[in-house]
Nucleic acid binder design. Structure first.
Length: 149
DNA sequence: ACACTGATAATAT
DNA sequence: ATATTATCAGTGT
């Protein structure tokens, strides 16, 4: 398993992975040096809308959380869903979705930042709601410029 | 068993 | 339109 980090604004993203399986993606203030898969640097620079072929280790299994993570991972770049919609898709309750997001081991791979509260407000984000805002702003800005030929 | 959630829908101001 | 209250399903202690 390898570990590395890269920057996103004032924050850093620590990544632990093994081949195409990503075990951990967390926003942190300080992170050890080290390279990360190119998908991360491109995505965080707004030059990619996908992490393929990387996948989160959290989506495997048949636990409720795994189903939630799968449902969230299907949200397209630049789009959003509500906690309720995810709950419906994963056949569980919105509360549990929040719970799952709060413990999401692989941010970005499981784009919890694209999950909003039912009334369109942002909900929450760890460690800093500002990150969620920034990601959404970037995606909204880039979604029409990525992939143009 | 109990008390928590990154929630939501229903009531009551 | 905002504030409070029930209810919810899963996890952690």
């Amino acid at each position: 398993m390898q570990t590395g980090s890269c920057k996103f604004g004032l924050w850093k993203v620590i990544v632990s992975w093994n081949g195409n399986i990503v075990h951990q993606v967390q926003f942190v203030k300080t992170a050890p040096e080290g390279a990360v898969p190119v998908q991360f640097t491109k995505f965080l620079a707004g030059r990619s809308d996908s992490f393929a072929p990387l996948i989160s280790s959290a989506v495997s299994g048949e636990t409720v959380y795994a189903r939630i993570y799968r449902a969230v991972a299907e949200i397209p770049y630049g789009e959003t869903r509500t906690y309720r919609e995810i709950a419906l898709a994963a056949d569980t309750h919105p509360r549990v979705v929040g719970n799952a997001m709060a413990k999401n081991p692989t941010a970005l791979l499981v784009p919890c930042h694209r999950v909003l509260a039912a009334d369109g407000t942002l909900g929450g984000f760890t460690p800093d709601l500002q990150i969620k805002k920034d990601l959404l702003k970037m995606e909204a800005a880039k979604r029409h410029t990525i992939g143009k030929s």
